[in-house]
Simulated assay, not measured.
Amino acid sequence: MPQTPPVTVLVADDDDAFRLALVDLLAADERFEVVGSAPSGVDVHPLCAELRPALVLLDVRMAGGGPTLARSLGTLEGHRPVVVAVSAQTGVTTVAAMLEAGVQGYFAKGRLGTTLPDALARVVAGERVLDVPGAEQALRLVEGSLDPER
């Protein structure tokens, strides 16, 4: 049986220790190959164009990050990586904004563990995975069935 090639990953986070921990976690899993990392959102576009990762882990509140960057990654010429948000920012409106920008997963930094590679594999396979408090509310907000003032 032919072995599936690993999913190429770019990790973008302005917290050096956290970014390196994510790189180490994913590098230890044969399903993933970390091809690059970025300390700011400004670095993500050029690295995506050069390295063409299949998956981008994106901190929401780093300089140059957020919904604008997530949305722009969906318009890369000839290459559209799966984008997953990883953030300490888990408010319903923040999660909803990232979902509207096209992210396929959203993970709370404080809730990450050794199960992250399994969750990311599910996202790459086409499943939307949200591991944040209020995920259901964020989805309803995006769908227009929740009043943001409530």
Rank of each mutant, 00 (worst) to 15 (best):
M1V: 13
S37D: 15
A101W: 01
A54W: 06
V83E: 01
L22F: 06
V92I: 12
A121S: 07
C48V: 15
D24N: 14
D14N: 12
V86W: 10
T114E: 14
L146F: 06
G110M: 07
D14F: 01
L22S: 08
V23D: 01
V103Q: 03
L26W: 05
A17S: 13
A138Y: 07
V124D: 03
L57P: 08
V129A: 02
S37F: 12
A54S: 09
D118E: 14
A125D: 07
G41Q: 01
R140C: 14
E127G: 02
Y106W: 08
G36A: 04
V60L: 04
R31N: 06
V92E: 08
L20Y: 13
L47Y: 07
A27W: 03
A88C: 12
A63T: 07
Q104I: 11
S37C: 12
G36C: 07
A96L: 04
D59Y: 00
L26N: 04
E149L: 15
Q3G: 14
G102C: 05
A121W: 01
E100Y: 09
R128K: 05
D15T: 15
G110E: 13
D16C: 08
G126E: 03
V83T: 00
A38L: 03
M98V: 04
V142F: 05
V23E: 02
V42P: 03
A12K: 09
V82W: 01
M62A: 06
L51C: 07
V42I: 11
L73Y: 05
L139A: 12
L20P: 11
R61D: 12
E143K: 15
E77A: 15
V92L: 12
V129F: 00
R52T: 07
G78C: 00
Q3F: 13
